[in-house]
């Protein structure tokens, strides 16, 4: 009965996590653990709202969000690759810095705090024609698909191909695996890492745009609500492989979605919220222990 609706909302809740995780996993394949996804999502959401209102175009808004976050990502990458900053601390610092800058802009430019409403924000449209809704079970989910969700899933399914079959994909994997080898064969490993972080920024920006424009049409300081870290958990859980990571995102989106049911069944909301992290921890332990067993044999 409600399967359709669960499907719809799981899909929508998954999209921002998925977009951020796509960026994060590519970044990590190139050897950078991106703790700053949260910051880039937030700035993406902000830019998306401003631009959507100004241009009346969801497309330009998403593009602007993605590009601005890509630039932030690229600059962030420079501190890591060129100035040898520790990526974890720099990422945490970026999260604080971006939140501070956005708060500042909100209060000084827009004379508001926390929430920014702009007139005539254009939301993401439903893409597929209405008759899709008639398809049983998955119909409603299909008909509520927005362009970013479609883009995210297309990317997920293209990504394995891109990573295995294109030059840049090979370079990224080689850089993450053995940067000295990449350099030895004449590739610019640092530039490849920078590009991957910019890519992560691009997708985190889209994730932010989705949060802001999927249904709300406004910016809020708490909009990302730790989804950057959930994305991190997802690509750790999926071990940087696109399909597996996407499945982890779906699982986390589903968990988020079923909170209400679990809450009525007596689970405290706080403890439900920690499941992704617990799962990553357990997965990490499991794989490490298994790897060691294997090595000992």
């Amino acid at each position: 009965m409600q399967v359709e609706q669960i499907l719809v909302s799981t899909l929508i809740l998954t999209t921002p996590i998925l977009l951020a995780a796509i960026g994060g996993l590519v970044n990590r394949q190139a050897g950078i653990v991106n703790i700053g996804l949260e910051a880039k999502m937030l700035s993406g959401a902000f830019v998306a709202v401003i631009v959507s209102s100004a241009t009346q175009s969801w497309f330009i808004a998403c593009l602007a969000a993605a590009l601005s976050s890509a630039v932030i990502g690229w600059m962030f990458s420079l501190t890591i690759t060129r100035a040898h900053a520790n990526m974890i601390v720099a990422g945490l610092g970026l999260n604080i810095l971006v939140a501070g800058v956005l708060g500042f802009i909100l209060s000084w430019v827009y004379k508001t705090s926390g929430t920014l409403r702009q007139p005539d924000v254009v939301l993401l449209p439903d893409v597929l024609p209405e008759f899709f809704e008639k398809i049983p079970v998955i119909g409603p989910a299909l008909s509520s698909l927005d362009p970013l969700t479609i883009f995210a899933w297309i990317t997920v399914f293209c990504l394995p191909f891109v990573l295995t079959n294109t030059r840049i994909g090979l370079w990224i994997r080689a850089t993450g695996n053995a940067p000295h080898v990449t350099r030895a064969v004449g590739l610019r490993s640092l530039a490849i890492q920078d590009a991957s972080t910019a890519f992560a920024g691009f997708f985190a920006g889209l994730a932010g745009a989705h949060l802001a424009l999927a249904s709300l049409g406004l910016f809020n300081e708490g909009l990302t609500a730790g989804r950057g870290f959930i994305a991190l958990a997802a690509f750790y859980f999926g071990r940087d492989r696109p399909i597996q990571t996407a499945m982890a995102c779906l699982l986390f989106g589903f968990l988020d979605n079923t909170q209400i049911r679990l809450q009525t069944a007596g689970f405290p909301p706080k403890l439900i919220g920690m499941t992704p992290y617990l799962m990553v921890l357990l997965a990490l332990i499991f794989t490490s222990v298994r790897a060691q067993r294997k090595a000992r044999l």
Binding site: T79, R82, A83, H84, A85, N86, V89, A90, L92, G93, L94, N95, I96, L97, V98, A99, G100, V101, L102, G103, F104, S107, W108, S113
Partner: peptide, 23 residues
């Protein structure tokens, strides 16, 4: 606003780990 403090703190955090001599 308080955000100024966040800006300072975030910047300090990022640059605390930058190794200037090795840029």
């Amino acid at each position: 606003p308080l955000d100024l403090v966040n800006i300072i703190q975030g910047t300090v955090m990022i640059f605390a780990v930058v190794e200037l001599g090795r840029i």
